[in-house]
Simulated assay, not measured.
Amino acid sequence: MTTVMPQSELVRRAAQYIDEMLKEGKSLSVLLDEAGMRFNLSPKDAEMLRDLFKSDNNGE
């Protein structure tokens, strides 16, 4: 049986996944695509994560 999870929890888990994989040297663009599919993110959620991680990488 599957468990329904709030979208905010999926976004949090996706962000954690991306953060861990970036430490292993993987490309941000590839990770964003993988996380979008893996965590069933909406385009708006994926864009928010992209902005979050790009701003973190720029030191803003």
Rank of each mutant, 00 (worst) to 15 (best):
residue 16 Q to D: 10
residue 27 S to N: 14
residue 16 Q to Y: 11
residue 21 M to R: 12
residue 42 S to M: 02
residue 5 M to H: 07
residue 47 E to W: 14
residue 41 L to C: 07
residue 37 M to L: 08
residue 46 A to L: 14
residue 53 F to S: 03
residue 39 F to D: 00
residue 31 L to H: 03
residue 28 L to Y: 02
residue 1 M to E: 13
residue 5 M to A: 07
residue 41 L to W: 02
residue 3 T to C: 06
residue 30 V to P: 06
residue 30 V to M: 08
residue 46 A to V: 10
residue 50 R to D: 04
residue 40 N to A: 13
residue 57 N to V: 10
residue 9 E to L: 05
residue 31 L to F: 07
residue 18 I to F: 00
residue 37 M to I: 05
residue 39 F to W: 04
residue 33 D to R: 13
residue 51 D to H: 15
residue 30 V to Q: 12
residue 33 D to V: 09
residue 45 D to C: 01
residue 10 L to W: 03
residue 5 M to R: 08
residue 17 Y to D: 03
residue 25 G to H: 05
residue 5 M to G: 04
residue 47 E to T: 13
residue 54 K to E: 14
residue 53 F to I: 05
residue 49 L to S: 03
residue 50 R to N: 07
residue 18 I to R: 00
residue 56 D to L: 15
residue 33 D to G: 09
residue 28 L to R: 02
residue 53 F to H: 03
residue 36 G to V: 01
residue 34 E to M: 14
residue 14 A to W: 03
residue 2 T to V: 06
residue 34 E to L: 15
residue 58 N to C: 07
residue 55 S to I: 13
residue 2 T to W: 11
residue 30 V to Y: 09
residue 4 V to G: 07
residue 18 I to G: 00
residue 40 N to E: 12
residue 59 G to H: 08
residue 54 K to A: 15
residue 46 A to C: 11
residue 36 G to H: 01
residue 8 S to I: 06
residue 6 P to I: 12
residue 44 K to P: 03
residue 1 M to P: 14
residue 3 T to P: 05
residue 44 K to D: 04
residue 32 L to H: 04
residue 31 L to Q: 04
residue 53 F to K: 02
residue 14 A to G: 08
residue 28 L to Q: 02
residue 25 G to I: 06
residue 29 S to M: 08
residue 14 A to T: 06
residue 16 Q to G: 08
residue 35 A to Y: 03
residue 6 P to C: 10
residue 57 N to W: 11
residue 8 S to Y: 06
residue 11 V to M: 01
residue 33 D to N: 11
residue 14 A to F: 07
residue 31 L to I: 07
residue 57 N to D: 11
residue 10 L to N: 03
residue 50 R to A: 05
residue 36 G to M: 02
residue 32 L to C: 06
residue 10 L to A: 05
residue 4 V to M: 10
residue 7 Q to A: 12
residue 55 S to V: 13
residue 50 R to P: 03
residue 3 T to L: 10
residue 21 M to D: 07
residue 10 L to F: 05
residue 7 Q to I: 09
residue 8 S to R: 12
residue 47 E to G: 13
residue 11 V to S: 01
residue 37 M to W: 12
residue 25 G to E: 05
residue 26 K to Y: 14
residue 58 N to I: 07
residue 58 N to V: 06
residue 37 M to N: 11
residue 27 S to P: 09
residue 25 G to T: 05
residue 46 A to T: 12
residue 52 L to T: 07
residue 43 P to S: 04
residue 19 D to H: 15
residue 33 D to F: 11
residue 34 E to F: 13
residue 20 E to K: 08
residue 5 M to N: 06
residue 42 S to N: 04
residue 43 P to N: 04
residue 8 S to P: 04
residue 38 R to C: 08
residue 59 G to Q: 09
residue 27 S to Q: 11
residue 43 P to Y: 00
residue 18 I to S: 00
residue 56 D to N: 13
residue 54 K to Y: 13
residue 47 E to P: 15
residue 36 G to D: 02
residue 52 L to W: 05
residue 33 D to Y: 14
residue 54 K to D: 12
residue 50 R to G: 03
